[in-house]
Simulated assay, not measured.
Amino acid sequence: MKNQITCCLAGLLLLLAACKKDDTPTTPKVYRFNSSIQVDGLTRTYTVNLPPNYYEASNLSLVIALHGGGGSGAQFESTNNLTPKANASGFIVVYPDGTGVINTWNAGRCCGSAMNNKVDDVKFISQLIDKLLADYKINPKKVYVTGHSNGGMLCYRLACELSNKIAAIAPNGCSMVMSTPCNPARPVPILHMHSKLDQHVPYQGGVGNGVTGISVPPLDSVFTVWSGKNGCTNPNQLSFSNSSYSLTKWLSCSNNSSIHFYLTNDGGHGWPGGLPGGPSSDIPSTAINANDLLWDFFQQYQLP
């Protein structure tokens, strides 16, 4: 009888232990983070979106998406549809915010209070990359930057000054407006998207109808600079053209880099395949999809 009681008690204890283990709450998996870092006395904010496979994956790619002048990370995310692409394709996307009452980036000769106050946005993005690499499961060789308008301008400045941390860039609806010589430490692959109908930042250069009030260089001159920086020996080759868009490539570049230029015949100053940036913004091009193009392009490159 004593042995039976002992066995029953032992079985009951095992059952209770099993129940306790099953009832232990698990830490919920979080996929969205709003955070900030301090840079030069300024609180710099950003939003992180992790893909659904994040907690089972490793060595993920990071895409930093820079909004246009007057926008914000939240606004850019809501109109470019890049987050659904990131979730489907399994990469991390981060949306930083510019500075000022009207958010802008200091891209050199543009734009707004960020330029006037000499805000060091290159330093911000550099420290942001360091923070993200420390906090998340990111492959440091697979960090990429994309951006629209003023954000695209900053893409070019980052390529000039932060090429040791950024594998490739994909600017849209912008030009390069450096105020100092561009001296990248390595060739930088570039995918540029633009509309012929963009009157805010004309692809042929000059002063657009936007609030920047500056004259931007024509894209031909920008690509001439970068084909030289990238050591391209097969420049300016028309790869494809139809009634909707053309694709020009600069190939045979150093370290297998390249430059791809998509020029659409429709749309305006908007994110191709996305939504208008605001109530009075241009209707974006439907001839190409920026998110598909940039992700296909980025996957071809990584830092040495």
Results as ranks from 00 to 15, higher is better:
210 G>C: 09
36 S>F: 07
122 V>H: 10
230 N>V: 04
118 K>F: 11
44 R>D: 02
101 V>H: 03
72 S>L: 02
264 T>F: 10
205 G>P: 01
254 S>N: 12
219 L>N: 14
155 C>D: 07
15 L>F: 15
60 L>D: 06
134 A>H: 08
12 L>F: 15
278 G>R: 12
88 A>C: 04
68 G>Q: 08
74 A>N: 06
84 P>K: 14
212 T>P: 00
90 G>E: 02
95 Y>G: 00
116 N>A: 14
285 S>H: 05
254 S>D: 10
284 P>C: 05
93 V>E: 03
116 N>E: 09
140 P>Y: 03
215 S>K: 12
33 F>H: 14
269 H>I: 00
13 L>F: 13
201 V>T: 15
182 C>P: 02
200 H>A: 06
11 G>K: 01
169 I>F: 08
209 N>A: 02
145 V>S: 07
235 P>L: 14
115 M>R: 13
32 R>F: 13
83 T>H: 03
240 F>G: 08
149 S>W: 04
230 N>Q: 05
151 G>E: 08
126 S>T: 14
17 A>T: 10
78 S>Y: 01
255 N>R: 13
288 I>F: 08
263 L>F: 01
157 R>V: 03
159 A>P: 13
230 N>P: 06
244 S>I: 00
233 T>F: 06
134 A>V: 03
233 T>E: 10
54 Y>T: 09
213 G>Q: 10
82 L>G: 01
88 A>R: 15
184 P>N: 00
141 K>R: 15
216 V>Q: 09
274 G>I: 05
20 K>Q: 13
271 W>T: 03
178 M>H: 12
250 W>H: 13
257 S>F: 09
266 D>T: 06
142 K>V: 02
177 V>L: 06
32 R>N: 14
263 L>C: 00
68 G>A: 04
165 K>E: 07
78 S>H: 01
203 Y>T: 05
100 G>A: 07
296 D>R: 15
64 I>A: 04
67 H>V: 09
84 P>C: 13
104 T>H: 06
143 V>H: 04
245 Y>S: 04
13 L>V: 14
175 S>P: 00
210 G>K: 07
238 L>D: 06
255 N>L: 11
207 V>A: 05
260 H>V: 05
259 I>D: 03
144 Y>Q: 11
161 E>D: 14
181 P>S: 12
146 T>V: 10
38 Q>T: 15
188 V>T: 04
300 Q>F: 02
84 P>M: 13
143 V>C: 09
269 H>Q: 00
183 N>G: 00
296 D>E: 15
37 I>A: 12
272 P>S: 01
275 L>F: 10
173 G>W: 00
3 N>M: 09
182 C>Y: 06
207 V>S: 01
154 L>T: 07
275 L>A: 08
135 D>W: 00
131 K>D: 15
237 Q>H: 14
188 V>Q: 02
112 G>D: 14
279 P>L: 00
206 G>S: 09
26 T>K: 13
241 S>L: 15
291 N>T: 09
255 N>V: 08
166 I>D: 11
20 K>T: 11
149 S>H: 03
207 V>Q: 13
190 I>R: 05
177 V>N: 03
60 L>R: 10
123 K>E: 14
90 G>S: 07
247 L>R: 13
203 Y>P: 01
60 L>I: 07
196 K>N: 06
227 S>W: 00
203 Y>I: 12
131 K>F: 07
244 S>C: 02
251 L>T: 15
285 S>M: 12
44 R>C: 11
